[in-house]
Protein backbone atom coordinates (compact mmCIF):
# COMPACT_ATOMS: atom_id res chain seq x y z
CA UNK A 1 0.00 0.00 0.00
CA UNK A 2 1.49 3.29 -1.04
CA UNK A 3 1.27 6.17 1.35
CA UNK A 4 -0.62 9.27 0.31
CA UNK A 5 2.52 11.38 0.12
CA UNK A 6 4.16 8.95 -2.27
CA UNK A 7 1.06 8.87 -4.47
CA UNK A 8 0.91 12.66 -4.57
CA UNK A 9 4.57 13.16 -5.40
CA UNK A 10 4.83 10.32 -7.88
CA UNK A 11 1.74 11.56 -9.75
CA UNK A 12 3.30 15.02 -9.84
CA UNK A 13 6.91 14.24 -10.65
CA UNK A 14 7.94 10.71 -11.56
CA UNK A 15 4.79 9.77 -13.43
CA UNK A 16 4.01 13.26 -14.64
CA UNK A 17 0.92 13.04 -16.81
CA UNK A 18 2.23 15.19 -19.60
CA UNK A 19 5.90 14.41 -19.74
CA UNK A 20 5.99 10.72 -18.99
CA UNK A 21 2.50 9.42 -19.71
CA UNK A 22 1.75 11.67 -22.67
CA UNK A 23 -1.73 12.58 -21.56
CA UNK A 24 -3.02 16.02 -22.32
CA UNK A 25 -0.41 16.79 -24.97
CA UNK A 26 -2.83 18.96 -26.95
CA UNK A 27 -3.37 21.56 -24.22
CA UNK A 28 0.29 21.20 -23.22
CA UNK A 29 1.37 22.36 -26.66
CA UNK A 30 -1.56 24.65 -27.35
CA UNK A 31 -2.04 26.64 -24.16
CA UNK A 32 1.52 26.85 -22.89
CA UNK A 33 2.42 29.98 -24.79
CA UNK A 34 1.78 32.43 -21.97
CA UNK A 35 2.31 31.97 -18.27
CA UNK A 36 -1.15 33.15 -17.18
CA UNK A 37 -3.03 30.95 -19.63
CA UNK A 38 -0.82 28.00 -18.68
CA UNK A 39 -1.55 28.39 -14.98
CA UNK A 40 -5.25 29.02 -15.71
CA UNK A 41 -5.52 25.83 -17.72
CA UNK A 42 -3.61 23.97 -15.01
CA UNK A 43 -6.00 25.12 -12.30
CA UNK A 44 -9.04 24.28 -14.42
CA UNK A 45 -7.72 20.79 -15.18
CA UNK A 46 -6.84 20.10 -11.54
CA UNK A 47 -10.31 21.20 -10.51
CA UNK A 48 -12.10 19.06 -13.09
CA UNK A 49 -9.87 16.06 -12.32
CA UNK A 50 -10.76 16.27 -8.63
CA UNK A 51 -14.47 16.68 -9.33
CA UNK A 52 -14.52 13.92 -11.93
CA UNK A 53 -12.78 11.54 -9.52
CA UNK A 54 -15.30 12.46 -6.80
CA UNK A 55 -18.13 11.46 -9.12
CA UNK A 56 -16.73 8.52 -11.09
CA UNK A 57 -15.35 6.64 -8.09
CA UNK A 58 -18.76 6.21 -6.36
CA UNK A 59 -20.37 5.42 -9.71
CA UNK A 60 -17.87 2.66 -10.44
CA UNK A 61 -17.89 1.08 -6.99
CA UNK A 62 -21.50 1.80 -6.07
CA UNK A 63 -23.40 1.20 -9.29
CA UNK A 64 -21.32 -0.55 -11.95
CA UNK A 65 -19.44 -3.16 -9.89
CA UNK A 66 -22.45 -4.50 -7.91
CA UNK A 67 -24.34 -4.96 -11.17
CA UNK A 68 -21.41 -6.52 -13.04
CA UNK A 69 -21.26 -3.65 -15.52
CA UNK A 70 -17.57 -2.70 -15.20
CA UNK A 71 -17.19 -2.74 -18.96
CA UNK A 72 -19.38 0.36 -19.15
CA UNK A 73 -16.61 2.34 -17.42
CA UNK A 74 -15.41 4.13 -20.53
CA UNK A 75 -18.85 5.15 -21.74
CA UNK A 76 -20.05 6.27 -18.33
CA UNK A 77 -16.85 8.07 -17.34
CA UNK A 78 -16.56 10.13 -20.50
CA UNK A 79 -20.23 11.11 -20.28
CA UNK A 80 -19.82 12.09 -16.65
CA UNK A 81 -16.79 14.20 -17.53
CA UNK A 82 -18.57 15.87 -20.45
CA UNK A 83 -21.63 16.63 -18.33
CA UNK A 84 -19.46 17.78 -15.47
CA UNK A 85 -17.50 20.20 -17.56
CA UNK A 86 -20.75 21.71 -18.83
CA UNK A 87 -22.12 21.90 -15.30
CA UNK A 88 -19.02 23.53 -13.90
CA UNK A 89 -19.02 26.01 -16.74
CA UNK A 90 -22.66 26.98 -16.20
CA UNK A 91 -22.35 27.12 -12.43
CA UNK A 92 -19.18 29.16 -12.56
CA UNK A 93 -20.72 31.61 -15.01
CA UNK A 94 -23.67 32.24 -12.69
CA UNK A 95 -21.96 32.24 -9.30
CA UNK A 96 -18.34 33.37 -9.70
CA UNK A 97 -18.21 35.42 -12.90
CA UNK A 98 -14.71 36.69 -12.16
CA UNK A 99 -13.32 33.15 -12.01
CA UNK A 100 -15.30 32.25 -15.10
CA UNK A 101 -13.70 35.10 -16.96
CA UNK A 102 -10.23 33.77 -16.32
CA UNK A 103 -10.90 30.02 -16.54
CA UNK A 104 -14.04 29.81 -18.67
CA UNK A 105 -12.33 29.60 -22.03
CA UNK A 106 -10.36 26.52 -20.99
CA UNK A 107 -13.27 24.53 -19.65
CA UNK A 108 -14.77 23.28 -22.94
CA UNK A 109 -11.35 22.08 -24.01
CA UNK A 110 -11.06 19.83 -21.00
CA UNK A 111 -13.70 17.35 -22.17
CA UNK A 112 -11.35 16.05 -24.82
CA UNK A 113 -8.31 16.23 -22.55
CA UNK A 114 -7.20 12.67 -22.15
CA UNK A 115 -5.54 13.39 -18.81
CA UNK A 116 -8.93 13.76 -17.13
CA UNK A 117 -10.33 10.50 -18.48
CA UNK A 118 -6.92 8.95 -17.88
CA UNK A 119 -6.79 9.81 -14.20
CA UNK A 120 -10.27 8.43 -13.51
CA UNK A 121 -9.50 5.17 -15.32
CA UNK A 122 -6.07 4.85 -13.66
CA UNK A 123 -7.63 5.26 -10.22
CA UNK A 124 -9.85 2.27 -10.93
CA UNK A 125 -7.06 0.21 -12.54
CA UNK A 126 -4.73 0.77 -9.58
CA UNK A 127 -7.42 -0.24 -7.06
CA UNK A 128 -6.99 2.99 -5.15
CA UNK A 129 -9.29 3.81 -2.25
CA UNK A 130 -11.41 6.94 -2.46
CA UNK A 131 -8.89 9.09 -0.58
CA UNK A 132 -5.98 7.71 -2.60
CA UNK A 133 -7.90 8.43 -5.81
CA UNK A 134 -8.45 12.02 -4.78
CA UNK A 135 -4.78 12.45 -3.89
CA UNK A 136 -3.76 10.90 -7.19
CA UNK A 137 -6.08 13.28 -9.06
CA UNK A 138 -4.68 16.24 -7.14
CA UNK A 139 -1.11 15.15 -7.85
CA UNK A 140 -1.88 14.56 -11.51
CA UNK A 141 -3.49 17.97 -11.86
CA UNK A 142 -0.66 19.76 -10.06
CA UNK A 143 1.88 17.88 -12.15
CA UNK A 144 0.04 18.95 -15.28
CA UNK A 145 0.10 22.54 -14.12
CA UNK A 146 3.79 22.31 -13.22
CA UNK A 147 4.66 20.98 -16.68
CA UNK A 148 2.60 23.69 -18.37
CA UNK A 149 4.08 26.50 -16.31
CA UNK A 150 7.66 25.30 -16.79
CA UNK A 151 7.10 24.83 -20.48
CA UNK A 152 5.57 28.28 -20.91
CA UNK A 153 8.86 29.68 -19.63
CA UNK A 154 10.83 27.55 -22.07
CA UNK A 155 8.66 28.70 -24.96
CA UNK A 156 9.18 32.32 -24.04
CA UNK A 157 12.89 31.83 -24.49
CA UNK A 158 12.29 29.83 -27.64
CA UNK A 159 10.63 32.81 -29.31
CA UNK A 160 13.96 34.60 -29.49
CA UNK A 161 15.94 31.59 -30.61
CA UNK A 162 17.30 31.31 -34.12
CA UNK A 163 15.66 28.14 -35.39
CA UNK A 164 16.24 26.50 -38.81
CA UNK A 165 13.40 27.24 -41.22
CA UNK A 166 11.98 23.69 -41.36
CA UNK A 167 11.95 23.36 -37.60
CA UNK A 168 10.08 26.60 -36.95
CA UNK A 169 6.81 26.27 -35.09
CA UNK A 170 5.59 22.87 -33.96
CA UNK A 171 8.76 20.81 -34.55
CA UNK A 172 10.85 23.18 -32.44
CA UNK A 173 8.21 23.12 -29.71
CA UNK A 174 8.27 19.32 -29.68
CA UNK A 175 12.06 19.18 -29.48
CA UNK A 176 11.96 21.67 -26.60
CA UNK A 177 9.34 19.50 -24.89
CA UNK A 178 11.69 16.58 -25.27
CA UNK A 179 14.40 18.45 -23.40
CA UNK A 180 11.99 19.40 -20.60
CA UNK A 181 11.00 15.74 -20.46
CA UNK A 182 14.65 14.74 -20.05
CA UNK A 183 14.85 17.02 -17.04
CA UNK A 184 11.84 15.27 -15.50
CA UNK A 185 13.57 11.94 -16.01
CA UNK A 186 15.83 13.06 -13.19
CA UNK A 187 12.98 12.37 -10.78
CA UNK A 188 12.70 8.72 -11.77
CA UNK A 189 13.78 6.33 -9.08
CA UNK A 190 12.80 8.82 -6.40
CA UNK A 191 10.27 6.33 -5.02
CA UNK A 192 10.22 2.60 -5.41
Amino acid sequence: MKTLGVILLSAMLTDNFVLSKFMGICPFLGVSKKLDSASGMGIAVTFVMLCATCVTYPIHHGILVPNGLEYFDTVVFILVIALFVQLVETAMKKTIPSLYKSLGVYLPLITTNCAVLGVTVLNIDNNYTFVQSLVNALGGGLGFMLALVIFSGVRRKLQYADIPETFKGVPATLVAASIVSVSFMGFSGLFN
Binding site: T166, F167, A172, I179, S181
Partner: peptide, 18 residues
Amino acid sequence: MPAGGFFTLGCIIAAVNK
Protein backbone atom coordinates in the same frame (compact mmCIF):
# COMPACT_ATOMS: atom_id res chain seq x y z
CA MET B 1 11.83 6.99 -23.27
CA PRO B 2 9.21 9.75 -23.25
CA ALA B 3 11.75 12.40 -24.22
CA GLY B 4 12.65 10.48 -27.36
CA GLY B 5 8.99 10.44 -28.39
CA PHE B 6 8.78 14.21 -28.45
CA PHE B 7 12.09 14.47 -30.27
CA THR B 8 11.22 11.89 -32.94
CA LEU B 9 7.83 13.42 -33.65
CA GLY B 10 9.35 16.88 -33.92
CA CYS B 11 11.91 15.62 -36.43
CA ILE B 12 9.31 13.70 -38.46
CA ILE B 13 7.04 16.73 -38.71
CA ALA B 14 10.01 18.85 -39.73
CA ALA B 15 10.93 16.27 -42.39
CA VAL B 16 7.37 16.19 -43.71
CA ASN B 17 7.37 19.98 -43.91
CA LYS B 18 10.63 19.91 -45.81
